[in-house]
């Protein structure tokens, strides 16, 4: 590479930018369509920049169904799921990475084995359990089964393995308590991994459809995916407004992504194998 002229590097830009644009076309299409007039849907030549702008698609969509409430519900549930994962996955990941106790290896296996049991597989009995707790049509009914995820534990364990044990020993000799060690020494070093964990826990909860569909039958607790599917099934609702809701649904995850971006860059390497 060194032998090439530096200017040549720019030659790679057009194909790469083209590829990126191609991958992003559906996203751009969604954005553009959400501002189009509804008759423009399946026209032969797409105007990527709308000839006439229809920002009213957004308020119109919000008026046709209680979307502000649905979004609020989704945000509540996703924030709780995110918090639950951050807390419990960190604890368990730390415990598995830095402590030896009888059955520790079995515990790791047991946790990883739950990857075999996604909600889609245990839907029926989980539903019956949540029902027997009286949690149908409640927030806790929606978020409870999502609070801890084995992937998160594994991610944290891999990352904490990379924190030098000497630091922990030194702190213990200084008389620091275990919780304090976790808070003061381990966590600050885990920020990138926590960012990845938080983003994916939030997004996975934000995406949940099948589970809320099963446990919720009241608008008060309906999350936005249920509202959006019902909206899309109604004959009267223009598809441009569906896209407006889809754009609004993308915004919260996008914002979280931007907020965490700096940390994520360092954290993504970890979602692979080694810390």
């Amino acid at each position: 590479m060194k032998r090439r002229l530096p200017g040549l590097r720019w030659l790679g830009l057009p194909p790469l930018a083209g590829l990126t644009l191609l991958v992003l076309l559906p996203v751009l299409w969604m954005l553009s369509t959400s501002f189009q007039a509804s008759e423009k849907m399946f026209q032969l030549a797409m105007d990527w920049i709308p000839r006439s702008w229809h920002p009213e698609n957004y308020p119109n969509a919000l008026h046709r169904a209680p979307f502000p409430l649905f979004f609020f519900n989704s945000i509540v549930v996703s924030l709780v799921v995110m918090a639950g994962n951050v807390v419990f996955c960190t604890l368990a990941g730390y415990g598995l990475a830095k402590f030896r106790f009888p059955g520790d290896r079995f515990a790791l296996l047991a946790i990883l084995s739950t990857l075999m049991l996604p909600l889609e597989v245990t839907l029926v009995p989980t539903f019956l359990i949540v029902h027997s707790l009286g949690w149908l049509n409640t927030y806790q009914g929606i978020f409870a089964p999502l609070l801890v995820d084995a992937f998160g534990i594994f991610l944290m364990r891999q990352f904490v393995l990379g924190v030098p044990t000497d630091y922990l020993e030194a702190a213990r000799i200084d008389g620091a308590g275990e919780v304090r060690i976790l808070w003061r020494i381990v966590l600050p070093q885990c920020k990138p991994a926590l960012a990845v964990l938080a983003l994916f826990a939030y997004r996975d909860s934000w995406d949940q459809f099948l589970w809320p569909l099963a446990v919720v039958s009241r608008d008060e607790y309906r999350t936005y995916p249920l509202g959006l599917v019902r909206f899309a099934e109604d004959y009267g609702n223009p598809q441009t407004e569906q896209m407006a809701v889809a754009v609004m649904a993308t915004v919260p995850v996008f914002v979280l992504f931007l907020l965490l971006q700096r940390l994520l860059k360092r954290g993504f390497g970890l979602t692979g194998l080694k810390g």
């Binding site: 604890l91 368990a92 275990e178």
Partner: peptide, 23 residues
């Protein structure tokens, strides 16, 4: 050792209730 168990236990209990039990 006890601390290690204490850190891992919440997750294990959760899985017992929402994963192994249902399965």
């Amino acid at each position: 050792r006890l601390w290690g168990v204490a850190f891992v236990l919440p997750a294990l209990l959760f899985f017992a209730f929402f994963k192994y039990g249902p399965m």
